[in-house]
């Protein structure tokens, strides 16, 4: 089913599109064997070492292990213990500290692996973020909306310049502008993902930084209030989509 969707996305001919036949063949092969599966596996081991695995995580979050997948499908969330809306990475940092460890940096490779594993616990669940759950989530969503629409940087662009409904599907330098909420992309449900063009696994917040960098917007740091808010905003667009981690991207 996933393969069929991807064939749809990749079935462009001609040199206008960046994916060559060789790229497509590699893509097909990686679909069978996503290199980021290894990152997810190592993330699982790290979570065992740092925090007693799924069990320790569930305990920390105050949910049963059975309820854990659906709970994770609702991130970013307001976590009462922390008094703020956080992404999975920050939650893992708190978990590590709670277990007496020095938290890994949000941008470290091991953190990306742990984050990917943690989100993969929710594989098969649908994204169930609730942006109206409480005052904090409402604020985070509103801030995310604002950041998404803020024109800035050397070229005066906002995320909306390239991801608004009226330009989706048009071609920006060989790349179709993706609909971040569509059934085909289900963006927030497919990150962390392996990026073929970067030969590494990236998180959703890291992907945002990629767009900022390309479009000449000053890059904002992982974990900042604005970054988490952007994640809330973009995740809401993919609400109801089935989580499948790790994703595979161009």
């Amino acid at each position: 089913m996933l393969a069929a969707a991807l064939v749809g996305v990749l079935a462009f001919g001609g040199e206008q599109f960046a994916m060559s036949d060789a790229d497509r063949a590699m893509y097909a092969e990686m679909l069978e064997n996503n290199p980021a599966d290894m990152d997810v596996e190592s993330g699982s081991e790290l979570l065992d070492e740092y925090a007693d695995g799924d069990e320790g995580l569930a305990k920390f979050l105050g949910v049963s292990e059975d309820a854990l997948p659906a709970y994770i499908a609702g991130f970013p969330r307001y976590i009462e213990k922390l008094g703020m809306v956080v992404g999975l990475g920050q939650t893992l940092q708190a978990l590590m500290a709670d277990n007496g460890h020095k938290p890994l940096a949000l941008k470290s490779e091991d953190m990306f692996s742990m984050l990917a594993y943690t989100k993969s616990i929710a594989n098969g669940e649908n994204i169930n973020i609730d942006v109206k759950a409480n005052k904090q989530m409402k604020e985070a969503y509103a801030l995310g909306d604002e950041v998404f629409n803020t024109e800035r940087g050397g070229r005066g662009l906002s995320c909306m310049s390239c991801h608004s409904p009226d330009v989706i599907g048009t071609i920006l330098r060989t790349q179709p502008l993706p609909d971040l909420g569509s059934k085909e992309n289900k963006t927030a449900a497919t990150w962390p993902a392996y990026r073929m063009t970067k030969s590494s696994m990236r998180t959703l917040q890291r992907r945002f930084q990629g767009c900022m960098n390309n479009a000449l917007l000053a890059v904002i740091p992982l974990g900042s209030k604005e970054m988490v808010a952007l994640e809330v905003y973009v995740t809401e667009k993919a609400k109801g989509r089935e989580i499948a981690i790790p994703g595979l991207k161009r």
Partner: peptide, 20 residues
């Protein structure tokens, strides 16, 4: 302690300087 253990860097100053 938990709250201080997590990274919440400031981005508002970066954005404010970058506005169109």
């Amino acid at each position: 302690d938990l709250r201080s253990a997590i990274e919440v860097p400031d981005a508002s100053a970066i954005i404010a300087k970058d506005l169109l």
